[in-house]
Nucleic acid binder design. Sequence first.
DNA 1: AAATCACACAACCGCAAGGGG
DNA 2: GCCCCTTGCGGTTGTGTGATT
Length: 275
Amino acid sequence: MDVGSENEMVTDVKKGPWTEEEDAVLRTYVETHGEGRWNSVAYFAGLRRTGKSCRLRWLNYLRPQVRRGNISLEEQLIILELHSRWGNRWSKIAKHLPGRTDNEIKNYWRTRVQKQAKQLKCDVNSQQFRDTMRYVWMPRLAERIRAAESKGRPACLPISSSNDPTFDDVGAHTAELKSDRKDPSFMPEPSLGISSDSCSEAQVSPVSGLTECYNLPDGSTCGLGSGAGHLGWDIPGQEDIMSSELLLDGGDSWDSLWNEENIWFLRQQLSDDHF
DNA sequence: AAATCACACAACCGCAAGGGG
DNA sequence: GCCCCTTGCGGTTGTGTGATT
């Protein structure tokens, strides 16, 4: 039976948040008849929703495989890594994070990562910000994962999203980075060569030279070692990181590290042409 | 206690690709 | 080749909630 177009089927479309009743109806229908033909789902299930809306609700919320809750450290690292390669290819990135939806990853990027760029008053697509992410945040994240594992805690332990320490204490590290770059022996990786508007497939993995890697589902690797190590410089305060009980607690202390002073300091580094 | 603000997440919208008739 | 429909994607907006004033 041809159920016609979306507009024909749903004349009085309901929008906004889904109710529990609607969720139950959709869940029951999809579990019985399977996914696909979303306009038909909306029609036959008696939902005053568009097919699009039903599909989105199912994929992002009702699907049994959907993992909810905070993004783990490892997931954060994968997101940063894959975004550096592919840019805003959220669905592609989501395929490497089982149970996570493109919408969730997109939201994570916007609320966490872009927030940091905003605080630093630099463009999220700028080379400076990419370098900060690549040389500071990602190595720190990797260190925290290793620290968690060495403590016998699962690396996938989620942290409080509001207290995410990933972006903490960047100023001090950036200062070190800057000083090390003045070292004649400093040999950075070739520039990613990413223009502000290009997020193409051709992007190069920023951690391709890391000493320790783990395998991504596509067979490529993602660094878990110190990203700075292969460049001949160390992340200062590493011992503190390794020994800190704050590491994965998501405590308030982390928030205090990402304070105005650090932001101001990092801005100075970012505004420096040498960086 | 009320108002305001900031944040995280859910949902919508427009567009493009792909497939079938 | 064209049209229509469905699906998927990325950008954007809306909403709920907790924190702050």
